[in-house]
Simulated scan of single mutants.
Amino acid sequence: MKQRWWYSALACGASATLALLGCALLTKQYSATASILIDPPPSSDVRTAVAVSPVYLESLRTYEYFAGSDSLFQRAAEQFHLTAADPSEPIERLKKRVLKVSKLRDTKILEITATLPDPKQAAALAGFLAAQTAALSQAVGREGDQELIAKTEQQLQAEEKRLGELNQAMQHLEGGQANGSERYKLESLIDSQAGVERELMRGEADLAEHSDGGLQRRVAELQKQSAALKARIAESETRIARTTAQREALEADIAAATRERDALRSRARDLRAIVGTRGERLSVIDAGVVPQRPSSPKTTLIVMSALLLSFVASVLYLSVGFSMAQLRVRTSRFQHAEHERTY
């Protein structure tokens, strides 16, 4: 190896030259990074607002799918004409080559990195994706709140309709004037029955003093009238009791429906007040700057790697060559010794 050191020098020089030439031929790529801060939803409890568990931080990785969605990247590709260089390239491969989204470990920071040959375009693309990710998160949260509000308002309308039907049923119920007339009729029947009872008592007393056919017929007629009046009184009391029970049931249903309607109104009002604020809030804290240095190719790393690999390869080559030469010498000496022994 001392005698043939120039092998290693030549290999290292050639590999370094080829590496430099390859880096010069490769297209320079610039990476721009935009950062998003994920704030937890506001809370009235200070303890829950401050304490952030590792499980919660890990759950924030969901927002990587917001920034890395195919539809969002396709809109960005159309706006920045990313497919103009190679229209046949699939959008999935282009996204894998251009976009990188990651949430920093144990933080609430989401980073969006765009890599393109044009540094200004890379910075604009990263900023656009960051802004659209925040807007998409707000739109999704607002859409969920709007669906919940619409469902609550639908329940409120159904409850108001039911309450109107109950009030209408109460108005048409045999209460109010109808029930009052029924009570007046009942009182009148009771008075009539009391009068008949008094006449019946007097008739029975007169009949006890002296027997008379006409008086007996009169007493029998009064007994029939008293029985008929009692039956009518019982029917009237039954109708009044039934109407009263229906009215009490309707009043209970109206009270329950009123409470439910008021609760739904309050819930709908609260939902309108907090629409779009129940989920995490995404804020763009760094829209990205125009990169000054290319992210690839990394010339220094490539050249150093080429030098190291070429040096190791040259040493292995010289070592193997030296071993093979030693093996040939030993084989030649052994054959020569065998030849002398034979002759």
Rank of each mutant, 00 (worst) to 15 (best):
S137V: 13
E64P: 10
E340D: 10
P41Y: 00
Q216H: 03
T133V: 01
Q335A: 10
R162F: 08
V315F: 07
D262E: 08
N179T: 04
A32M: 01
A245G: 09
G213I: 15
R293Q: 10
A263K: 08
R183Y: 00
R330D: 11
A306H: 02
A268R: 10
H336V: 13
A194E: 04
G203C: 09
P297K: 06
L316Y: 01
R239Q: 12
S15I: 00
A139V: 02
S332H: 09
G164L: 15
S8T: 01
E237I: 03
A287Y: 04
Q154P: 03
T133Q: 08
T277I: 09
E165C: 09
M324L: 15
A139S: 08
L271G: 09
G279V: 06
A255I: 06
D262S: 08
E92D: 04
A49N: 08
T48D: 09
G321T: 14
S295N: 06
E92R: 14
E147W: 08
F73N: 00
A124K: 11
A245F: 05
S43D: 06
E209R: 13
G213F: 10
I112S: 04
F311T: 11
Q168H: 14
A126H: 04
V46E: 11
I149R: 09
Y343V: 12
L229C: 01
A263V: 08
A169T: 11
T244G: 15
E235L: 08
E237K: 12
I190F: 01
A139P: 03
L60R: 08
I38E: 03
D286E: 06
L10G: 03
A287L: 07
T331A: 14
R272W: 03
S43L: 07
A124E: 10
L129V: 08
T107Y: 04
Q138K: 11
Q146M: 12
L94P: 02
R272Q: 09
